[in-house]
Computed example of a mutant assay.
Amino acid sequence: MPMLTVKTLAKLAALLALLATPALAEQITDAAGRTVDIDMPAKRVLVGEARQVSVISALAGKHAFDTIVGWRDDLMTKDLDTYRNYLEVFPQIADLPRFGYVGNGTFSVEAAIALKPDVMTLNLESQKAAEESGLEEKLAAVGAKLVYIDFRVDPDANMENSISVLGKLFGNEKTADELIAYRRQQLARVADVLAAHPGMREPKVYIERAPGIVGDEVCCQTFGPVNFGKMIALGGGHNIGSDFFDKFSGELNAEQLIVSNPDIVVVTGANWSRQSDVNKFVSIGPGADLDAARAQLQALMERRPFNALPAVKAGKAHAIWHQFYGTPYDFVAVQQFAKWFHPDLFADLDPEDTFRELHDTFLPVPYKTGYFVSLTTESN
């Protein structure tokens, strides 16, 4: 065995010292405005809303589930088609531990802690429930950090930062920056055209939030000026709900809807078959049967007061994938709204191509059509 020189021993000692040095924590600001120190990238992540995987997978690609040790059960119940699309590529998710919702008390802190996470991501709307349950303190007691993400409550303020935070947690800040830039570029394809036509009339649009999930549903749940309400505005329409609500959503009186007389009606839909007790929703999403979805939309439009609306009688009713409201892929919805609201101006814009390009560029799952449907085939 050759003798180690003093110089070699010194180099070896320096290397061992370097390896023994703990990683320096990086400080991030989450969607709740909290500063959190976390060793980046995270090694064991609890995903507090499984639908966040649509962003995580864009950032981590085929390694999306390498560091996820558990996730909420909402992807299966809220968006079954997307779950199945991911299951084809990542069969291991069938065995990934699932947990309930912090917001309704079905989340078990003890079960989460047993997974030994170093980070848990949680949607911003769950903050109050998390604080009341002492979730942050209980996680901190075992060395885990809580990080709030938001693509839904206040996207204008939190969308890009939430992408950046997830990029750091999953070790790909460069892709996060690219995704942010891509979203800006795609939104500009609509904004630039609308800016060139400042005097153009904005059609009045009523959007109904997730109709047909439960029985005896009272009309009419809609959105205020944020989220889908903002997407309608970005697409060149006037959101009727914004005239009555200054918050995320609200319930519009049926008589008021008739008086408002929208030019266009939109409903949101997804595959809620594991959640619904009546299955009267419009089932759209990746790989959806659009003929069946059109029939479901037709059935919803036969309810009162929709069957009395001139817009519906003229066939100006559409359905759009509900999950655009909780992802940074809102630009696809904005482009589709622009096509529906101003078909002549946006004749050359193809939201399907945009969403397909997003999948080809960023996502590890294949693109499948099925995210939009109209009452008449001519409107698709």
Score class of each variant (00 low, 15 high):
Ala311Cys: 10
Gln296Ser: 14
Asp291Ile: 12
His318Glu: 12
Pro310Ala: 13
Lys313Pro: 07
Ala288Ile: 04
Ile320Ser: 13
Asn307Ser: 09
Arg294Ser: 00
Gln298Pro: 00
Ala288Cys: 01
Leu300Lys: 06
Ala288Gln: 03
Leu290Lys: 02
Pro286Ala: 03
Met301Phe: 11
Ala292Ile: 10
Ala308Ser: 15
Ala299Gln: 11
Arg294Asp: 01
Gln298Lys: 15
Leu300Tyr: 07
Ala293Ser: 14
Ala299Glu: 03
Val312Thr: 10
Leu300Gln: 13
Gln298Ala: 15
Ala308Leu: 15
Leu290His: 08
Ala295Leu: 11
Ala317Tyr: 07
Ala308Arg: 11
Gly287Ser: 03
Pro305Phe: 06
Asp289Tyr: 00
Glu302Cys: 06
Val312Gln: 05
Leu290Trp: 02
Ala311His: 08
Arg294Lys: 14
Met301Val: 08
Ala314Cys: 07
Ala319Thr: 11
Ala292Cys: 12
Ala314Lys: 14
Ala295Thr: 12
Ala314Tyr: 03
Ala293His: 07
Met301His: 11
Leu309Phe: 09
Ala311Arg: 13
Ile320Glu: 05
Pro310Thr: 07
Ala317Asp: 03
Pro305Leu: 00
His318Ser: 13
Leu300Pro: 01
Ala308Lys: 14
Ala299Ser: 13
Pro286Ile: 05
Gly315Val: 08
Asp289His: 01
Gly287Arg: 00
Ala319Tyr: 04
Met301Glu: 06
Pro310Trp: 02
Ala288Val: 10
Gln296Thr: 06
Ile320Cys: 09
Arg294Glu: 01
Asn307Pro: 04
Ala314Gly: 04
Leu300Val: 02
Arg303His: 13
Asp289Arg: 00
Asp289Cys: 02
Asn307Phe: 14
Pro286Met: 03
Met301Tyr: 05
Val312Phe: 07
Ala299Thr: 09
Asn307Leu: 07
Ala295Asn: 10
Ala317Ile: 08
Met301Ser: 09
Ala292Tyr: 03
Ala295Trp: 05
Ala308Phe: 12
Val312Arg: 04
Ala308Cys: 14
Ala293Lys: 09
Ala317Glu: 01
Ala308Trp: 12
Val312Ala: 03
Arg294Thr: 08
Ala299Asp: 02
Ala308Tyr: 15
Lys313Leu: 11
Ala293Cys: 10
Arg303Phe: 05
Leu297Thr: 13
Met301Leu: 15
Arg304Gln: 15
Asp289Thr: 02
Arg303Glu: 07
Arg303Pro: 14
His318Val: 15
Pro305Lys: 12
Ala317Leu: 02
Arg294Pro: 05
Leu309Thr: 13
Lys316Tyr: 07
Arg294Ile: 02
Pro305Cys: 02
Arg304Ala: 10
Gly315Asp: 10
Phe306Lys: 00
Gly287Ala: 01
Pro286Glu: 03
Leu297Ile: 07
Ala308Gly: 12
Ala288Glu: 12
Ile320Arg: 04
Glu302Gln: 15
Glu302Met: 15
Pro286Trp: 05
Arg294Gln: 12
Ala292Asn: 15
Ala295Lys: 13
Pro310Arg: 11
Pro286His: 09
Leu297Ser: 01
Gln298Asn: 13
